[in-house]
Design a binder for these strands. Structure first.
Length: 752
RNA sequence: UGGGGUAUCGCCAAGCGGUAAGGCACUAGUUUUUGGUACUGGUAUUCGGGGGUUCGAAUCCCUCUACCCCAUCCA
């Protein structure tokens, strides 16, 4: 595994190390209501990948709590996707619906604890009662029902005695919670619907927030990994598991950013729209980012996994460039597939000085691909080349055939254009050319230099095939909807010409059509009468790129930042601020202290002590700095502090009387936080007295300089940033005790 | 607007107080019977902005800004 692991793996490793878990269990929990796409692939790679890496296991669980949208055909597609990617789930495929009984029992338990109630307000009213993001909600009057009544009502809900929507079961949490998700979330709703697995057994179904955490718990999941939009749901996740007081261990939820790719859409809703709207031919349309689509387009599972590894895992919403995906599939196929020749837009070439026919030996693989295999290539006086491999009046830098410029026919001879034949409209319909007998591939003695070799097929033996050229489905980088669909995303060439071996010998199902791209024999429409090939991805085309007018993008200016208003200080804050300033505390520090009640309070106590010890002569700037920086951090992270204001005052005193440096003070402070000991004790116990004597520091510097000749070199060459490196090394060597100012000075002198 | 997140190159992304990793894209060159591949080099004096702490800050503190998520009986 790479040393730079993602944040999820870091969490897993910490949990393993701390003993929070000694076995890792993850799960991939899709809802079977749509076809999996590459975003699912990312999740699959994460969940199954982490399980593999840490010798745990991963479950495949269908999160089937909504009978109205889910279907077994999606279950199959999901299973297929996981398998195709090469992962194995632990045991059988799991279903949330398998746990309905248990989940129901947990609901009863909550009711009995007085933590859940049956609410009978209608949907609209419930929405009103929920409040808004800025206003607290109010609790439904039904929340006051007795436990017995709740139990009875819930039982009746289960028995199907009510209509859809008449009642719901809700958790009793907090209608004024800042997190909207915690305003008495729904646990169960009535739904008289046929469930594709549970049949008609249930007329109530658990909501995601209730079912998911419990399913994770039931399966013994340790790390419940989901996407960012569930961050707010984590509070319910924890609430349910904690409130139920389940026997440990329990799972914990962690979120990562979902995958976005430009020029495509990833939401199930939009995908469904395309499929149902007929913009594409189905869930497996090769233009779709679905697993089925990539599969049919010719992508390999390996390439998709590599892609998922390359893009990383983080928490920042991001949009990955399709070029990255395309690189992965090209890179994978490059070393795997045979090269063959196929002419998409044929232009007839008659080689006037060639008579008869022959068969040429041609390797399927170029020199740099370590694979064996070859085929026979028929050759005669009538061939076809690609239409844009000939130009009568070529632009500068054109390497292919022109009236003046000969070209090699790949694996065959060099030809020279002798005559251009056009139809009445001026369109070129044929080239008359001459070949050079001595230029035969492999035994060229002609001495002719050509700028390039082009692909071709022999006219009589070539096979007609259908080729489907796919381009990005959307013309916009961040498409909104079907109005952004690229009208040219599919181009079908009905009569492309391919060399016969591809059809007769079928050496593979994926090919590189030389100079054009990678193609895949369509697994569904391909027949011997009409072979069909899908373009997986084009080759990189630096000529095609060059031809385009380089779009001169305006030099990017830095975005101007608007500074917002700072809230004015209250009167008391202002008074404190003024007082701090009078003690020569800097503006910023005074500002920080004055505005935070906890900090100003802490500071006051510390200063009272400081004043007693040092009198009014010493300005309390060190003290104020520590409180505004260090104490502020600690107060932010934890709510409790192990060190007292008096101790901090002592620490400041030691800095002021130069007993210790700021660097040491940080170490001491860390220790104070941990042990609660007095700073003087810590300094004494650890011998943290500052070393300022140059004669003591000097030899250490010499040693470090001797150990890092390259960096000395770089420094002397002008990389002055390395001063920090050397100072850091010296400080490290002395356990932070060396006086940094002195070290800085000495290092600078020695390196001169 | 309350809460929860996130900001490091054109796109991803490491980095956790001591030299700004890596991949894609871009670019220049070498090799090449694919304008492919491979190889070699070039691409952030700077980490959303501004302050502060420190000998030293992308990393710690304060503050501002921008973007994403949350008010489905969806997941």
């Amino acid at each position: 595994m790479s040393e730079n692991k993602d944040f999820l793996r870091s969490i897993v490793e910490e949990d393993l190390k701390s003993g929070k878990f000694n076995k890792i269990t993850t799960r991939f929990p899709p809802e079977p209501n749509g076809f999996p796409h590459i975003g699912h692939a990312k999740s699959i790679c994460i969940n199954f990948g982490i399980a593999e890496d840490y010798k745990g296991h991963c479950n495949l669980r269908m999160d089937d709590t909504n009978p109205t949208t889910e279907d077994t055909k999606y279950v199959e597609a999901l299973k297929d996707a996981v398998q195709w990617l090469g992962f194995n789930w632990e045991g059988n495929v799991r279903f949330t619906s398998d746990y309905f009984d248990q989940i129901h029992d947990y609901a009863i338990a909550l009711i009995k604890m007085g933590k859940a109630y049956v609410d009978s307000t209608n949907e609209e009213e419930m929405r009103e009662f929920r409040g808004t993001v800025t206003q607290a909600g109010k609790r439904s009057p039904f929340a006051e029902r007795s436990i017995e009544e709740n139990l009875e009502l819930f039982e009746k809900m289960k028995k199907g005695e009510f209509k859809d929507g008449e009642h719901v079961l809700r958790a009793k949490i907090d209608m004024s919670a800042a997190n909207m998700k915690m305003r008495d979330p729904l646990l169960y709703r009535i739904r008289h619907a046929h469930h594709f697995r549970a049949g008609n057994k249930w007329s109530i179904y658990p909501m995601y927030d209730f079912a998911h955490c419990l399913s994770d718990y039931i399966e013994g999941v340790s790390h419940s990994i989901c996407t960012l939009e569930f961050e707010n749901n984590r509070d319910i996740y924890n609430w349910v598991l904690d409130t139920l007081k389940l026997t440990p261990p329990r799972p914990y939820q962690h979120e990562f950013a979902r995958l976005g790719i430009n020029y495509t859409v990833m939401s199930k809703r939009k995908l469904l729209e395309l499929v149902e709207g007929g913009q594409v031919s189905g869930w497996d349309d090769p233009r779709l980012p679905t697993i089925a689509g990539y599969k049919r387009r010719g992508y390999t599972a390996e390439s998709i996994i590599t892609f998922c590894e390359q893009i990383g895992i983080a928490k920042a919403n991001s949009m990955v460039d399709v070029a990255q995906l395309e690189f992965c599939i090209r890179d994978d196929l490059n070393t795997k597939v045979p090269r063959v020749m196929c002419v998409l837009e044929p232009l007839k070439v008659t080689i006037v000085n060639y008579e008869g026919k022959e068969e040429l030996d041609a390797s399927y693989y170029p020199e740099d691909v370590p694979k064996e295999g070859s085929r026979k290539l028929p050759f005669s006086k009538e061939i076809y080349i690609e239409r844009d491999d000939f130009i009568e009046t070529p632009p500068k830098g054109y390497f292919r055939l022109t009236p003046e410029q000969p070209v090699r026919l790949k694996h065959a001879y060099i030809i020279t254009c002798k005559e251009v034949i056009k139809d009445t409209e001026g369109k070129i319909i044929e080239i008359k050319a001459e070949y050079n007998l001595a230029s035969k591939s492999g035994s060229d003695s002609s001495g002719i230099k050509v700028k390039s070799a082009i692909h071709w097929v022999e006219a009589k033996t070539a096979k007609e095939v259908e080729v489907r050229l796919y381009d990005r489905l959307f013309k916009e980088e961040a498409p909104e909807g079907i109005e952004d669909v690229n009208p040219d995303s599919l181009k079908v060439i009905k009569k492309a010409l391919i060399e016969p071996a591809v059809i007769n010998e079928k050496p593979d199902e994926r090919f590189q059509f030389e100079r054009q791209g990678y193609f895949y024999a369509d697994p569904i429409d391909y027949t011997d009468e009409t072979p069909v090939f899908n373009k997986t991805v084009g080759l990189k085309d630096s000529w095609g790129k060059k031809k385009k007018i380089p779009t001169q993008s305006a030099p990017k200016l830095k975005k101007e930042q608007i500074d917002g208003e700072v809230v004015a200080m209250s009167e008391s804050e202002q008074a404190l601020f003024d007082q701090y300033i009078s003690l020569s505390i800097s503006y910023e520090i005074a500002n920080t202290l004055a505005r935070d009640e906890k900090l100003s309070h802490f500071y006051k106590e510390a200063y009272d002590d400081f004043k007693v010890q040092m009198g009014d002569i010493q300005a309390p700037t060190s003290l104020a700095n520590i409180v505004a920086n260090e104490i502020a951090r600690e107060l932010k992270e934890k709510n409790e502090l192990k060190c007292t204001p008096k101790q901090v005052s002592e620490l400041a005193k030691m800095i002021d009387d130069k007993t210790i440096s700021n660097k040491i003070a940080k170490q001491v402070f860390e220790e104070m936080l941990k042990s609660g000991d007095n700073p003087a004790q810590i300094v004494k116990a650890k011998g943290l007295i500052q070393i300022s004597d140059p004669s003591e520091i000097s030899p250490i510097i010499d040693e470090i300089i001797a150990k890092n000749p390259e960096n000395v070199e770089k420094f002397k060459a002008g990389n002055t940033k390395l001063l920090g490196f050397f100072v850091g090394q010296v400080l490290k060597a002395t356990g932070g005790k060396a006086n940094p100012q002195v070290v800085n000075k000495l290092v600078a002198e020695k390196l001169k």
